[in-house]
Simulated assay, not measured.
Amino acid sequence: MWKRFRKFGTKLVRSGLTHSHFGNISIRLDDSMFITKTGVMLDELDEKSIVKVDIEGNSETETIASIEAPVHRAIYKNTPSLAVIHSHSPHAIVLSLISEEEIVLNGMESYCFLPKIPIVTGEAGSEELAKNVAQGLQDNKGVIAKGHGTFAVGESLEKAYVNICLIEHACQVKYLLDLMK
């Protein structure tokens, strides 16, 4: 399992979607989630980098899980998602800082896959952020936490990664288009 986490952690860093120490990855398996530990480098994950946490309640491993574990937990409790990726994608963050409630996108990919991306608020790892992200993901493949980064979901890590890529690409196109105006 950790090798799949490492594959997508490495892809996130190499593609510029986040930096090594920023972001987290999880998958749901029955009543638990496996999530990256706090402070691990996404492009150097190993079997000790992932921790199992109960979705319904506190686990002994909660203190070493990513600070965003409450957000991942809320997503799993409120959506049918089986995988979550959180990245600190630069164009998505910039657009979230200059936009209000959502980003309306341009371009073929956006028209087909995600014409808008909700912007949600809340401090990193907070219950407010968990509630707002989970609510935004009920009808969307991804959301952007204002000034913080993107949360994308899928039935697998592959699908969540595709959605993270789509969001950042769409935000980059919008950013560049807005520069031309």
Results as ranks from 00 to 15, higher is better:
137 L>R: 02
29 L>F: 10
11 K>T: 02
58 N>A: 14
46 D>C: 07
159 K>C: 03
142 G>L: 06
114 L>P: 12
13 V>T: 03
21 H>L: 15
51 V>I: 10
83 A>I: 11
5 F>P: 10
14 R>V: 08
129 L>Q: 09
131 K>A: 08
143 V>E: 00
65 A>H: 03
147 G>E: 14
108 M>S: 12
110 S>P: 14
64 I>A: 06
176 L>N: 04
106 N>M: 10
105 L>F: 14
123 E>G: 07
36 T>H: 11
55 I>R: 02
68 E>N: 10
140 N>C: 01
48 K>Y: 12
4 R>L: 04
89 S>V: 14
37 K>A: 05
105 L>T: 10
43 D>R: 04
23 G>I: 04
96 S>I: 12
47 E>D: 11
174 K>Q: 12
14 R>Q: 15
18 T>G: 04
83 A>L: 09
160 A>K: 03
134 A>Q: 01
148 H>G: 09
72 H>A: 11
140 N>G: 00
148 H>S: 00
145 A>W: 13
69 A>G: 00
68 E>G: 07
65 A>D: 06
139 D>Q: 03
70 P>R: 14
82 L>V: 10
133 V>R: 06
44 E>N: 04
122 G>S: 06
10 T>Q: 01
77 K>S: 05
15 S>M: 13
134 A>H: 08
15 S>N: 13
52 K>N: 02
177 L>Y: 06
100 E>D: 11
144 I>R: 08
99 S>D: 14
83 A>F: 10
154 G>A: 07
61 T>A: 03
176 L>Q: 09
28 R>C: 01
139 D>A: 05
25 I>K: 05
64 I>C: 12
12 L>I: 12
54 D>C: 06
80 P>A: 05
46 D>F: 03
141 K>L: 02
15 S>Y: 15
81 S>I: 02
84 V>C: 07
34 F>Q: 11
111 Y>M: 08
181 K>W: 06
163 N>P: 01
177 L>E: 00
51 V>C: 05
16 G>T: 13
165 C>N: 03
87 S>F: 06
177 L>G: 03
145 A>V: 12
116 K>C: 14
37 K>S: 11
67 I>Q: 10
168 E>A: 03
30 D>V: 07
89 S>M: 08
